[in-house]
Design a binder for these strands. Structure first.
Length: 364
DNA sequence: CATCCGTGGAT
DNA sequence: TATCCAAGGAT
């Protein structure tokens, strides 16, 4: 291990900076409390790390609060209904995370006696936990000197060591560079300090080098090309795909919804029946025979790897309508907040176009 | 190693 | 408006 090695001076400077400038975050035990012996709750660390995968702190805050209020410990989450967890995750994106979150919670209860594995290798066995998350939880919750490499750390070390290899090929090189900075002391604070530095000082554009505790050892800063690092492989253009969404409103106000299959886009989420999006609207049929009409302008939504243009069709159907797909959900039980953002957009377009029972009563 | 998988804010 | 980007993982 590194016990007998000296902690690099730069690492000490970074920890000192963290002691003064650590962000205050709902899932974090700050450096002051940590020094006083307060231990982070592994469940909260794990939950926050899953939520933070490819997701901004600002977007995560409210979700983390709602999840921990509703499911304060891993056993409670493990016992939750799948649909409830997916509904609570709706809008946060990357829904495989939510499916794996539940699997992970249940694995902790079923296979680990309700306690999280306390090592990087043990954590890696949990679904949804990869190299980053395993190292982060091991370091932050269990003080294991694991090297944590996320997008922030990649940027920081690419600049410190002026590594010009483009990502993702540079990944292993960046990991080795980050490992050379990982101390035996305060590994959790060090990991969070690296990420805070990347998030607040060593930012992708216009890094605030004048405020950086590591400026003296920064090779890119010395060369003046810090803003161009890390280099990245060129991105592929997003194709445009088309599709149709069918939103049926029954005479009693019930709405036709379906739970999407676990695989594919928005997997496991509630949504309106629709066509596939891989062709030009697809040849598939509507979920029931009705007089379908355009609800409004074409919906536009951009996913990670394609742009989507969706026609939203609506129909008012009789009380005895029998759908070919999906199931009617009573008006009182329908919560738009349980839908992923795309489906919520579809509802916003449709709501203005369907005839509500109240309107019917008023017209009668 | 490449591809798939969301979303919203910043620029 | 278009592009980039954020505490990545699974396949």
């Amino acid at each position: 291990m590194r016990d007998t090695e000296e902690t690099p001076a730069a690492t000490l400077r970074l920890l000192h900076w963290y002691d003064r400038h650590a962000r205050v975050l709902p899932w974090r035990v700050g450096p002051g409390d940590r020094a006083a012996g307060v231990r982070p709750d592994p469940y909260r660390v794990w939950l926050s790390e899953i939520m933070l995968q490819q997701t901004t702190v600002a977007a995560v805050r409210d979700y983390f609060r709602r999840f921990t209020e509703r499911w304060p410990e891993v056993a409670a989450l493990a016992a939750a209904e799948d649909a409830e967890v997916m509904a609570e995750w709706a809008g946060l994106g990357y829904y495989a995370r939510a499916r794996n979150l539940l699997k992970g919670a249940r694995a902790v209860v079923a296979d680990h006696g309700g306690r999280f594995p306390d090592s990087r290798d043990g954590l890696l066995t949990l679904p949804g936990v990869g190299p980053y998350t395993a190292a982060a939880v091991a370091a932050i919750a269990f003080d294991e000197p694991a090297t944590v490499v996320d997008g922030n750390v990649e940027r920081v070390v690419a600049r410190l060591f002026r590594i010009e290899t483009p990502l993702p090929a540079a990944k292993s090189e960046l990991t080795r560079a980050a490992a050379s900075l990982t101390p035996a002391v305060r590994p959790g604070d060090h990991a969070q300090a690296m990420m805070d530095l990347g998030a607040t000082i060593c930012t992708p554009r216009n890094p605030a080098c004048g405020l950086c505790p590591l400026i003296h050892g920064c090779a890119a800063r010395a060369a003046g090309d810090q803003a161009t690092l890390p280099r990245k492989a060129p991105k592929v253009a997003k194709p445009v795909r088309d599709g149709v969404l069918w939103i049926a409103c029954r005479a009693d106000g019930a709405l036709l919804l379906e739970t999407r299959p676990d695989s594919g886009m928005l997997g496991g989420m509630l949504g309106w029946p629709g066509t596939d999006w891989d062709r030009s609207g697809g040849p598939s049929d509507p979920p029931l025979t009705a007089l379908w009409r355009d609800a409004g302008p074409e919906l536009r939504h951009t996913f990670t790897h394609f742009h989507l243009r969706l026609r939203v069709l609506v129909a008012d159907v009789p009380a005895d309508a029998v759908p070919l797909r999906g199931a009617f959900v009573a008006q009182a039980a329908f919560r738009p907040s349980a839908l992923p953002t795309l489906m919520r957009k579809g509802w916003n377009v449709a709501a203005a176009a369907i005839r509500h029972p109240n309107d019917t009563a008023r017209l009668a």
